[in-house]
Design a protein around this nucleic acid. Structure first.
Length: 337
DNA sequence: ATCGTAACGGTTGAA
DNA sequence: GTTTCAACCGTTACG
């Protein structure tokens, strides 16, 4: 359940425990950093803990994305229907086969790779629970099952998990930014926006602004706006740094000075940066985008790349299967009226 | 003073 | 419909 109210951190900023900062704040952190503002000053100005600033900047530096990681869900199973089907086949052909032999065969036949091959114990469990006494199965049945399993797995898993792709097989496998050699099965999972770049994020945001309500906190779920993101609201003329100015203006309201505490704004003017409003109502939770590609520990050659850069998102298996939804704040505790 | 990060309490969503 | 579990979150405190 969403809390009725957010909490206030030591800096006077409002946050919701367990929930990501809104994209507007995340974006601001990156923008300020690009302008040469020190993280400690960013922390003070935005009233976000320095640990959070550090984390967001580090992630941006490594992934090019300002977005939070994907929350919730489960890791994709390794015992996909396809794998079970192969195990069944092996067992049928050689009823005395050992689990470890099956494991080796799965690897040898390319059904799995070293990242997603089931453990011996998992195979044993499959043999015990899912396959049982194969000798009582007719060949016709098994063939039919085989066929269905293949189709089903192709539909349900292949385009999402792409287990045999060594790039995506491990969630922590680094993937260079800008890589375009993704197999088609990974290029565009079912409900995922094509990019986690700021451009796409705000492109999406610009659309959601149009379709959403007056509450800056409510955002459509990805199921809704992932399709929007594909319908050509890429960059437009009123983009600033790849961002929709309107959306920025709206999200800028997040600046945390509602408590009446003095803002830390002197250095803002001195730095010549965009003069963000510094005394706007607190409204921390606006639309969230989709998850950042967490776990991709990319050592960027270009620290703090321009935020307008479009960096294709290379989804991890976990990304693509379970993080399709953005965060929705229906009852935003921070929405001041 | 600044920054990186582990611990913590929390949320989320697939299985 | 509920529970479990492992992912993530931001804050805090420590070094």
């Amino acid at each position: 359940m969403e809390p009725a109210f957010g909490e206030v951190n030591q800096l006077g900023g409002v946050f919701v425990n367990g929930r990501p900062l809104p994209n507007a704040i995340r974006l601001r952190i990156v923008e300020l950093a690009q302008l040469g503002i020190r993280p400690c000053d960013i922390s003070r100005q935005l009233r976000v803990s320095h640990g959070c600033v550090s984390k967001i900047l580090a992630r941006y530096n490594e992934t090019g994305s300002i977005l939070p990681g994907a929350i919730g869900g489960s890791k994709p199973r390794v015992t996909t229907p396809t794998v079970v089907k192969h195990i069944r086949t092996y067992k049928q052909r050689d009823p005395g086969i050992f689990a470890w032999e099956i494991r080796d065969r799965l690897l040898a036949d390319g059904v799995c790779d070293k990242y997603n091959v089931p453990s011996v114990s998992s195979i044993s469990r499959i043999l015990r629970n899912k396959i049982g006494n194969l000798s009582q199965q007719s060949h016709y049945d098994s063939h039919k099952q085989h066929h269905h399993a293949t189709a089903a797995s192709a539909l349900q898993y292949n385009h999402i998990y792409s287990y045999t792709n060594p790039i995506t097989a491990g969630a922590k496998v680094p993937t260079p930014p800008g890589m375009h050699s993704l197999p088609s099965t990974m290029a565009m999972p079912r409900t995922w926006p094509s990019s986690h770049s700021v451009t796409d994020i705000l492109g999406i945001r610009s659309i959601t602004d149009q379709v959403s309500d007056t509450s800056p906190y409510h955002s459509p779920k990805v199921e809704e706006w992932s399709s929007l993101s594909r319908n050509g609201f890429q960059s437009t003329q009123h983009m600033i740094n790849g961002l929709d100015k309107g959306s920025i203006d709206q999200e800028v309201k997040y600046s945390q000075t509602a408590s009446g505490l003095p803002t830390v704004g002197s250095f803002v003017a001195a730095s010549g940066m965009t003069p963000y409003p510094t005394a706007a109502p607190v409204s921390p939770y606006m639309a969230y985008g989709t998850a950042a590609p967490t776990g991709r520990r990319i050592k960027s050659k270009h620290p703090f790349p321009q935020i307008s850069a479009v960096l294709p998102h290379i989804p991890t298996p976990r990304d693509s299967c379970s993080y399709a939804k953005c965060i929705e704040f229906k009852d935003n505790p921070f929405h001041l009226t």
